[in-house]
Design a protein around this nucleic acid. Structure first.
Lengths: 199, 199
DNA sequence: TATTTTAGTTAACAGTGTTAGCAAAAATAA
DNA sequence: TTATTTTTGCTAACACTGTTAACTAAAATA
């Protein structure tokens, strides 16, 4: 009997509808103004229906957080495989990281809780681990082929990520939009980091 | 007639009471849970009294934001004057920046909107300008005495600040508390930056 | 056809920032 | 000292927020 399947499909379609409606609202009005009531309004269902699909509002935000980290990880993975030299990979990944942040500002703000109350469960998100693992492996490879193969990879990874996140955060606070000349800052910072790492 | 003065003193004392009550609430429960009603409760006045002293909640937050930047600027100023060599100043200021962030976590989170809706008027705060001016001047001095005096001071300042803010932010997301070994990361990053700047 | 399960609803609770309208107290003027 | 005006602070409400209990109507099963 396909009844159960049809029901499941229907339930899934509502779930997707919730996420799509939420995303549309975020795009137009930002995370701040997203509310359960507005989502319910948009999908033309009553409020409690949303709670049949998500435990609470935070669960919806967590969904997008995961999605964001997944997208970022994918972006970095692609960029990494496009190069062979670890130093080049780090530079290209830095560039891609910056572009991702401003091409997907809503995602980035949610992922790192910039100006919004984000989920405190972020650090447990496996998609985040996936992204950091990608950075760590590249750092390790760069260190292995450097003049100082004894360097602490975790410390260097932390520095690498922090520089990137810091550049993005400060830029987002200052203007919100990425300045074309500002991309030089990333490249300069990345060059400095890689130089210190490899030499 | 000292009546006006007495009234002014009284009004001022309520204003201070509001800020002190708010701060106490933030210390115990965080920015998220701070509300006008709780403040009113704490100062034993009705809600509208608060609106006689502050235009809205954001104005109260802005007050603390300014206070935070003022404190940070003062800290950096002290540290700077304790050294003469610009490179040493940058290192010491980096250290002090890190310490400030974790010794005054509530301030720092508000100042940079980490996990909370912060005022979007931050960039206009003169106390922020004061702090950045301090960093910029030191960067300029370091560049002037370096082997590359033609370096773009604004770019370098941006990099310097971003590294610091990035390190702090990532650390706050990851654990909230500063790891003792993590301070090595700041010092490593600062050393790398200064080396790239001076050499 | 009768019964049970499921889906979706309304209405409420407890909280938020903010403000209009009113009462009482205090300061000023007569 | 009394009357008037100003200031001060209050109650109560509005329009939101996330969340949930209790109920109805529809659909699936026996």
């Amino acid at each position: 009997m396909g009844i159960a399947e049809r029901k499941l499909r229907h339930k899934e379609s509502i779930r997707i509808g919730i996420l799509e409606a939420a995303w549309q609202l975020v795009i137009t009005d930002g995370w701040q103004s997203l509310s359960i009531r507005k989502i319910a309004d948009a999908i033309e269902y009553s409020i409690p229906v949303i709670y049949n699909h998500f435990e609470n509002k935070e669960a919806i935000l967590l969904e997008f957080t995961k999605e964001g980290f997944e997208k970022l990880a994918e972006t970095l993975r692609e960029v990494k495989t496009a190069h062979t030299d670890p130093a080049q990979q780090l530079a290209a990944m830095g560039d891609a990281y910056w572009d991702f942040a401003f091409d997907n500002k809503e995602y980035y703000q949610l992922m790192f809780g910039l100006g919004i109350p984000a989920c405190d469960t972020v650090k447990k998100v496996p998609e985040l681990q996936e992204m950091t693992a990608l950075m760590i492996s590249t750092i390790k490879e760069a260190i292995a082929g450097s003049k100082n193969p004894e360097a602490d990879y975790f410390l260097k990874f932390h520095t690498y990520w922090s520089i990137l996140h810091g550049l993005v955060s400060i830029q987002m606070i200052e203007s919100g939009k990425p300045d074309v000349t500002k991309k030089m800052i990333v490249q300069d910072a990345m060059a400095g980091f890689t130089k210190a790492l490899v030499d």
